Amino acid sequence: MPDCTTKDVSKALVRLRSEIGAMTLGRVMTLIIVTDDDGADDALEAATAASRAHPSRIITLVRGDRRWSDRMDAEVRMGGDAGVSEIVVLRLFGELADHGEAVVTPLLVPDSPVVAWWPMNADYDVAGSPIGAMADRRITDASLSSNPRKDLLRRRQTYAEGDSDMAWSRTTRWRGLLATALDQPPYEPVTAVTVSGASDSASTDLLAGWLAVRLRCPVHRVRGKRGTGLTKVHMDRASGPIELVRPDRRFATVTQPEQPPRTVDLSRPGTAESLAEELRSMDRDITYRDALLKGLELVDGVSATRAGRSRK
C-alpha cells in the first residue's frame, strides 16, 4: 500500500482477519522492530520465527530516506509465512522517519504488552526514545554494533527497568553449565575467576560481570582475537580449577577435579533463538541488571566506570 495512512493499515488488518479467520485472536503482545532498510528482512525473519511461541502483532518500522517527501508505504501479512502472527511493515520517509511513534500508536494490540527491539544501531538512550517510552520491554543487541564494548557501556549509562540485551541471552547456556558445575561436591568457594573472549565480545563482558556479582571474588577479563566470541572460563578452587573451554565456537569441554571431561554443544544461538528467549518473560531481568550495573565495574579488564552510572 503506497503512500497510505494508519487508517488504511487498520482496515487491511480487519479485512485479512475476516478472510483468514480467528487464528490471530491469541496475540500476546505487540513487537515493534526499529530498523533501516538493510536490516529489515533479516530482523523480520527472526521475529517471525521467534513469535511462533509468542503470537504477536509484529510492526516493523523501517526508517527510509529523510530527504524524500513525507510518506508512509505499508505492507500487511497474515497467514502463510507470517505464521500465527500479524505482520505490518511500515516504511517511513521524510520527517516521518523520525516520528514512528505517531504511526505505531493506533496499531498497538489493546491491553497487551509492548516490546521494542532494535536489531542494530539502537538509539543512544532507548528508554528515553519515543518508541522506547511506550514499551514495557526494550531489547537491544550490543554484539551487532560497530563497537560492542562501547555500546554495552552506553546501555549501562542509560539503563532503565525493562531494558535487556541479546548479548546477555547468548550467555544463558554458559551460565547454566557453570552453575551446574558449582552445584556438585566438594562445594568449595571460588577464589578467583578468569573469563576469556574476543575483545569485541559484549557477552564475555556480561558473563564476567555476572560471575563477579554472584561469586564475590576477583574476576579478570582476558581479551582475545576479535570475532571469536566467548572462549573460556577458569574458576579456581582449593581442590582444583573448573574450566569451561570452547575453542571452535561450537563444542566446549567442561573439566573439574575427579570427574571425566565432558563435551557439550555450545554453539552461539541465532538471532531468532535469542529473541524468543527475551520474549518469554515481560518481567524485568534483575540478573541482567546486576551484571550490567554492578558487575562490570568489579571486573578487572572492563572499563565500566568510563560510562558512568545508570540514571534509573
Rank of each mutant, 00 (worst) to 15 (best):
K11Y: 06
A12T: 10
V14Y: 02
L16P: 00
L16S: 05
I20Y: 09
M29D: 03
T30H: 12
I33N: 03
T35G: 05
E45H: 02
V62H: 03
V62E: 07
D65K: 09
S69V: 15
M72K: 08
V76H: 03
D81W: 07
G83R: 02
E86I: 06
F93C: 00
G94F: 06
E95S: 13
L96H: 02
A97L: 07
V109A: 11
D111V: 10
V115N: 13
P119Y: 04
A127P: 04
S129E: 14
A133T: 09
I139C: 11
R156K: 13
Q157I: 04
D163Q: 15
D163K: 10
S164A: 08
D165F: 07
W168S: 10
R170C: 15
T172I: 13
L177E: 05
L178A: 03
A179Y: 06
L182C: 05
T191A: 07
T194R: 03
S196A: 15
L207M: 05
L211S: 08
R216T: 12
H220S: 12
K225N: 04
R226I: 14
T228Y: 13
T231R: 09
T231H: 01
K232V: 07
K232H: 12
V233R: 00
V233G: 07
D236I: 09
D236G: 12
P241C: 07
I242T: 04
E243I: 12
L244G: 00
R250Y: 15
A252S: 02
V254S: 04
P261Q: 04
R262V: 10
V264W: 13
L266T: 08
L266P: 12
P269A: 07
P269Q: 02
E273M: 13
E278S: 15
L293M: 15
K294M: 10
D300Y: 14
R306C: 00
G308W: 00
R309M: 15
